[in-house]
């Protein structure tokens, strides 16, 4: 990669109207390990691949619960994500106190979007080097949002960001029309399978490196919310087994297709 005159800071436009510092910040997202999110009519799920610095070190946290009704998955600079998630926790709490109801997912995502935008327009700041998937459920149902360092936020049906995420996205696009009516379990399976697509060949999903968060509309009662549940460590074992079992048992069609994609 070569330097140019227009990539020193986020307050300089290139002659084409691009802001290189913001684009470079997006590259930091691609350095992070992959995370996947999917929303159905009743649930949203976040799935992440955790990395460890060395064999004996612990794995980096990838999914953070923010409030009872939502959480996020991050790809990129974890410390930037911590700043943003702390901010979101404060905002969620303040909103609950003022309005007596869980903050709408769109609202909280807009807040971090606005914050991130500011750091792309002021010299004294730098853009955030992290991408987020924010998943949760509110009075209008389940929602999944993507957040980018540019401050761009978009509501998605499904999304994958981070290293090698293109393969996961291909999986998601191929199964797009199944998500809306998926059950909680099916959604989890799709999430794990999408994540699996993005693994490099020498890796596989284990209880150590996989992490998963789910929330949704609870079956009983009106407007009831299923509390954001994080599956980490041994707890994720049965979910992994269930998902990977089906994928192996499933007809070769899926494996075949993904091979086609690889070529």
């Amino acid at each position: 990669m070569f330097r140019n005159n227009y990539d020193n800071d986020a307050v300089t436009f290139s002659p084409q109207g691009r802001i290189f510092q913001v684009e470079y910040a997006s590259e930091a997202v691609k350095q992070g390990s992959v995370v996947v999110g999917i929303a159905s009519k009743t649930h949203t799920v976040l799935v992440a691949l955790k990395r460890n610095a060395e064999e004996l070190s612990s794995y980096q946290k990838k999914i953070i619960g923010i409030d009872e009704h939502f959480g996020l998955a991050l790809a990129g600079l974890a410390s930037d994500a911590r700043v943003l998630s702390n901010f979101m926790k404060r905002q969620a709490l303040a909103s609950k106190m003022t309005y007596g109801r869980p903050i709408p997912i769109e609202r909280i995502v807009e807040r971090i979007g606005d914050r991130a935008q500011t750091s792309t327009q002021v010299y004294t700041k730098r853009p955030y080097g992290v991408g987020l998937l924010v998943a949760g459920v509110d009075e209008t149902g389940p929602h999944l949002f993507e957040f980018q360092p540019s401050g761009m936020t978009q509501e998605m049906v499904a999304c994958a960001i981070g290293a090698r995420s293109q393969m996961a996205r291909t999986y998601l696009e191929r199964h797009l029309d199944k998500f809306a009516d998926s059950s909680r379990d099916e959604l989890i399976k799709h999430g794990l399978l999408a994540l699996k697509e993005s693994l490099s060949q020498d890796k596989e999903l284990t209880v150590d490196n996989a992490s998963l968060g789910v929330t949704g509309v609870a079956k009983d009662g009106k407007r009831k919310i299923e509390t954001f549940k994080l599956y980490d460590g041994p707890e994720i074992g049965p979910l992994l087994e269930a998902a990977l079992e089906t994928s192996e048992a499933a007809p070769a069609a899926e494996g075949g297709e993904s091979m086609e994609v690889d070529t």
Partner: peptide, 10 residues
């Protein structure tokens, strides 16, 4: 920009 965007939202 992506098939994965939720239609009618955003």
């Amino acid at each position: 920009t992506s098939k994965l965007l939720r239609p009618g939202a955003n």
